Computed example of a mutant assay.
Amino acid sequence: MKIAFIINDHSTEQPNYTTAAIGYAAYKRDNDVYFIGIGELAYASNGHFSARCKTIKGSTFKSQETFFKAMQKEEFSRITSEDLDVLFLRNDPSDEINDRDWAQNAAFIFGGIAVNDKVLVINHPSSLASAVNKMYFQHFPEILRPKTIISRDQKEIKDFFKEQKNKMILKPLQGSGGKNVFMMDKKNEHNLTQTIDAICRDGYVIAQEYLAEAKNGDTRLFLMNGEPLQVNGKYAMMQRVNASGDIRSNIHAGGRPEKVKMTDQILELAEIVRPKLVQDGMFLVGIDIVGNKLMEINVFSPGGLNIMSQMYEEDFATEVVKSIERKVRYKNLYSNYLYNSRLATL
């Protein structure tokens, strides 16, 4: 198959990222692999999706790092939706805030054009467009979520703070990677007004119940086709332990990855999330769990799959590619009878 990955930018994408791991796994299985930066997307005069891309062929690589670095050195070539079987949207819109606002919605728009050309687009672009901020999380059953309000009103947020016995989490509605996440309590209550104002500059504020278990970090679990991703009985999951004195457990924010065992409680949370993810065509998703609650559902570019593969000595990325290959086979067998949103999670 011919599979293209949309990334934010070639200059910021790293060889050890999850996208590179999946791309390398696809390459090893004799698929044609292409990487496209957001700024390289185009709409051709004949009505098709078009893009400048980077690809490499005819070489053997011993690791995803050597594969990706070699691919990055290649000259740009061009590909269109007529050539592609799969378009995997792996860019993170929150990385474009302020610097490249025009790039936040581009992948969904051009992904929709590719869908019209019968390309399998994952995750489903229309659903991704509705999930561009954390409000998407509020459409899942309340039993999954910490108590939350979303507002720009100082009084409403401060009243929630008192309701939560002077301890809560503040973060922006749009963002990821632990950026601008604050734990407010009696010790820093004097900064509450300033903190709310700072987050409000970029939009709405999420005020969220503080979960005591968060001091131990969180658990990142990958879901594929709505089910926990596993290979040989080992799950694609890890405990992300907070750096000392930091409430954020994201790896990019200094969190430390550790092995973690699957529990019935985590499986139950995953089962409750599954129906909506399947309905929305969310093929590959990362859920972040604290205690018996979900803190976040990452539907754009969840990371850590390469770390988990090393940790458990299992090739999770290849399992992802095998699932995509099956979808391409279904698409070819059924021609125009399967909608992209349904095919994405078959």
Rank of each mutant, 00 (worst) to 15 (best):
F5A: 03
I6R: 13
S11I: 05
S11R: 12
Y17A: 02
A20G: 03
A20V: 04
I22W: 03
Y24E: 06
A26S: 12
Y27F: 13
K28H: 10
V33A: 01
I38H: 05
I38P: 01
L41M: 14
L41E: 13
Y43R: 12
I56F: 02
K62L: 02
Q64H: 12
E75T: 06
F76I: 00
I79S: 07
I79F: 04
T80A: 03
S81F: 01
E82M: 09
D85Y: 10
D85F: 09
V86M: 07
V86R: 06
N91L: 08
D92A: 07
S94G: 05
S94W: 05
Q104V: 05
A106P: 04
A107V: 04
I109R: 15
G111E: 11
A114W: 01
D117G: 07
D117M: 07
V119F: 00
H124I: 04
L128I: 05
M135Y: 09
Y136I: 00
Q138P: 00
E142A: 06
S151E: 04
K155T: 07
D159A: 09
F160V: 02
F160D: 07
E163C: 05
Q164D: 08
K167W: 05
K167R: 15
M168N: 00
I169P: 01
K171T: 00
G177F: 13
N180V: 10
M183H: 15
D185F: 02
I196C: 06
I196R: 06
I199W: 00
I199Q: 06
I199Y: 01
R201A: 00
Y204P: 03
Y204Q: 15
V205M: 12
A207C: 07
Q208R: 14
L211G: 08
D218Q: 02
L223T: 01
M224L: 14
P228Q: 10
Q230V: 05
V231H: 14
N232F: 15
M237G: 09
M237L: 13
M238S: 09
M238E: 12
Q239M: 12
Q239I: 10
V241N: 03
V241I: 12
V241T: 06
V241E: 11
V241Y: 06
K261G: 10
M262G: 08
T263I: 03
T263H: 03
I266P: 00
E268H: 03
E268L: 03
A270N: 10
E271D: 15
I272V: 13
V273L: 13
P275H: 14
P275E: 14
K276F: 14
K276Y: 15
L277Q: 09
Q279K: 15
D280W: 01
G281C: 07
G281Q: 08
L284Q: 14
G286Y: 11
D288S: 09
I289G: 01
I289W: 00
G291A: 10
N292G: 04
K293C: 06
L294C: 07
G303L: 09
G304Q: 08
G304F: 00
N306E: 13
M308P: 03
Q310C: 07
M311V: 09
M311W: 09
E314R: 15
D315G: 03
E319D: 08
S323I: 03
E325C: 10
R329V: 15
K331E: 02
K331Y: 02
S335K: 15
L338W: 10
N340E: 11
T345A: 11
